[in-house]
Design a protein around this nucleic acid. Sequence first.
DNA 1: CCGGAATATACATGTCAAGGTATATAAGAA
DNA 2: TTCTTATATACCTTGACATGTATATTCCGG
Lengths: 127, 127
Amino acid sequence: MESVFDILAEPNRRAILSLLVSSQQSVGEIERQLRMPQPMVSKHLRVLREAGFVESTVDAQRRLYRLKPEPFQEVDAWLAPFRRFWSAHLDALERHLDRMDPPTASKQKTKKKTRRPNGGRDKGAKK
Amino acid sequence: MESVFDILAEPNRRAILSLLVSSQQSVGEIERQLRMPQPMVSKHLRVLREAGFVESTVDAQRRLYRLKPEPFQEVDAWLAPFRRFWSAHLDALERHLDRMDPPTASKQKTKKKTRRPNGGRDKGAKK
DNA sequence: CCGGAATATACATGTCAAGGTATATAAGAA
DNA sequence: TTCTTATATACCTTGACATGTATATTCCGG
């Protein structure tokens, strides 16, 4: 149970988190909305709490759980490098499709420089 | 192995993905950089490929793996509602602390009407 | 064709966490 | 007190993977 991704891997936990987006909820409310046995809810909430995804306050016998932002921001941060990649990907796709045009229409002059999307490494020139 | 989060839960898989951000890599290159036994690399790559995180092309005996954007975008999409939450969180916290200011009673025991600090939602009107 | 390199797959093993059931703790209400 | 509600925890079983080892496949060069 190391990373935030371990926590999010569990579907029921993701369901709980989604529930808590709208507002804080008691254990019983979560239990009813997700139709999930109460010990299971409590157990998942414990995991979520220890991972910093939620926090709770006491209201008589109830515990009200609400979201905490930090772990989500951590996921967001992890995603950042890939976000750069996928926005750049549209350009690459564009170039790709450009080279992909129907061969029947015109002669392929691919022999001109053979520019590959390879990033510089030369595929054929091994050894 | 249902969701993208299951895939990302594995640290070695995340490491592989991070490697591939810079450029496509062969299995051997990944193996060396991550100091990980080759069958393990291949197996994780298979999982990543079947989940749509990577794709491969053949280069002689090598397979070159590169990232595909869709699953990352899926994670990003899942994160969206929470992103709204955590940017709004500062305001909410502010208001919360404002109400929390102890004029007389720091007691959170609801002694009277049992009005829950639920934010004004009439959730109890069911049944 | 043979040998070796690069990668994939098959099989066996162990670990860990999710789910279920039962019980414990805690806080009203009567 | 005793009963009831709300939540937490303890124990157990089971199944899913991750890992390691061994082997299969594929490709190239000689």
